[in-house]
């Protein structure tokens, strides 16, 4: 079967990039493999928090693939859309990081040993 080339004279292709079918299938297989990988890694003790880190890294990778290819951000003509994506992730990160930072330092009632008045003077 012949693939329609991305530049095929399609009537509505004027302002949308049309991906090859083959690419979508490759992306699909990649995503399934990464799902298998993240499941398999969960059964291996990587020590400490590394299981969580690896699982999240794989999830971020999968999400990026979906966003770039399935959601067409790779070829998006409206650049503002990229700003929107980065902003959403950034503000979610703010919410989580600052809240966790509060919880993590809540018990520290005395100042750390290096934080003396002379610290601010040099």
């Amino acid at each position: 079967m012949t693939q329609e080339a991305p530049s095929s004279p399609s009537a509505t292709a004027g302002f949308a990039h049309i991906e090859r079918k083959r690419l979508y299938i490759a992306i699909w297989i990649t995503l399934l493999c990464l799902t298998a990988l993240t499941t398999a890694v969960a059964y291996v003790d990587l020590g400490g928090a590394w299981n969580t880190v690896v699982a999240l890294l794989i999830a971020v990778g999968k999400a990026s693939i979906v966003v770039l290819f399935f959601m067409h951000v790779r070829h998006v003509i409206e650049r503002m859309i990229r700003v929107v994506i980065v902003a959403a992730i950034f503000f979610l990160a703010l919410l989580i990081i600052i809240t966790v930072a509060d919880i993590a330092t809540r018990g520290m009632l005395s100042s750390p040993h290096w934080l003396t008045p002379s610290f601010f003077l040099w």
Binding site: T35, I58, K62
Partner: peptide
């Protein structure tokens, strides 16, 4: 994508070993 994150965060949390 939401599910891609929920799967490790809920099901694989802390490892299965």
């Amino acid at each position: 994508i939401v599910w891609i994150f929920l799967y490790p965060l809920l099901y694989l949390l802390g490892g299965r070993f």
